[in-house]
Nucleic acid binder design. Structure first.
Lengths: 184, 184
DNA sequence: CCCTTATTGTTAGTAACTACCAGTGCGGTA
DNA sequence: TACCGCACTGGTAGTTACTAACAATAAGGG
């Protein structure tokens, strides 16, 4: 609930134009309570709980395929389930993340954490440091391509299909043999 | 000079354990002077002027090759000239960027800016929005792979060859047909 | 010698965030 | 009913990054 009030105020008056005290007042709680639930002001926008979603899907992909294919298909599938509900809140948050430098930076840093989860989810490759390095490179590249798709999706106001956009971005980066409807 | 004092103090006492006033005092200037030269505390570590370096190299690559190959070779070449001088200062800054969350986030956000420069440097593709999207996806993926190589390089204390690591990361993400000495 | 300009310093303020302590409701135990 | 932890919330005071507005100093050019 606090997050809903925060995003609404951020959209109305801008991220920098809204203080944490404003959020607390709008939500009817004290500033201390806000800080307890969201350690930083940025977390009011960034908090999201679909991290393990992707990692679980990674582990479910067949191990024989190339890394970028396994990761890419997991990202496309995750995006599909993510955009099932109401896109409006997700879009509002995403637009804030893209337009506000501080949020954009933290959002990209969260990718860094997600990358570690993906590498761990890939499983047995992690024992060999060289294989782990290759997995990290592939994962970071896939996440970056996905982020490009997210930016495009926000620019289109969510009218285009997000999984399709991600598949297209992956195809542009890694070649047309990537999965998804946009690979053609 | 202010930056040199800042990095030294950050390494000695930690980033969060050093105030901007400490940096100002060590450099023999007032805190205001520090803020005038470095808009944020993070810039004391992040300020770097090799952005146009990469963009210029992009424009110099042959236009016939695939996007990731053009971008990748430019990144490898840029890294080669970058690691010519004294690696120690670069390594210290890089280690701070990786270990400090705030710096890591801002560093990744700088990649976002560099990505735009690369897309612009690619030239005529930018007119078609679909081509620009593909270029952005390829550029972001290449930069992410390079970042993975940077992390590995810092973990090895700069002992391994950075251009070689970048080439290996690109090869892991995009296949073995990427340029550089580490392609095999 | 005076004027312009660039750089630096000083002061006062805002806002994010923290440490520390206090109050409130709530289920379990005697 | 009285007592006791326990999770959540609130208040206070402080630190720190950062900004705005104005003064001072120093260099160069007429």
């Amino acid at each position: 609930m606090i997050q809903a009030h925060a995003v609404r105020l951020f959209v109305e008056h801008g991220y920098d134009g809204t203080t944490v005290n404003d959020v607390a007042e709008a939500a009817g709680v004290s500033p201390m309570t806000v800080y307890r639930h969201f350690p930083t002001k940025e977390d009011l926008v960034l908090v999201d709980q679909n991290g393990p979603l992707v990692a679980d899907r990674i582990a479910a992909t067949p191990a024989g395929q190339p890394l970028v294919r396994r990761i890419g298909s997991a990202l496309v599938d995750s995006a599909r389930t993510l955009t099932d509900g109401d896109d409006r809140f997700l879009l509002a948050r995403l637009r804030l993340m893209i337009s506000t430098p501080a949020l954009r930076a933290r959002h990209l840093d969260n990718h860094y954490v997600l990358q570690q989860a993906i590498v761990d989810g890939l499983g047995d490759e992690a024992v060999d440091p060289d294989a782990a390095f290759q997995a990290a490179a592939a994962a970071s590249a896939c996440l970056a391509a996905m982020h490009t798709a997210l930016v495009r999706w926000a620019k289109d106001d969510g009218r285009t299909d997000l999984p399709d956009l991600i598949a297209k971005a992956l195809a542009a980066a890694f070649g047309d043999d990537t999965p998804g409807t946009g690979g053609r």
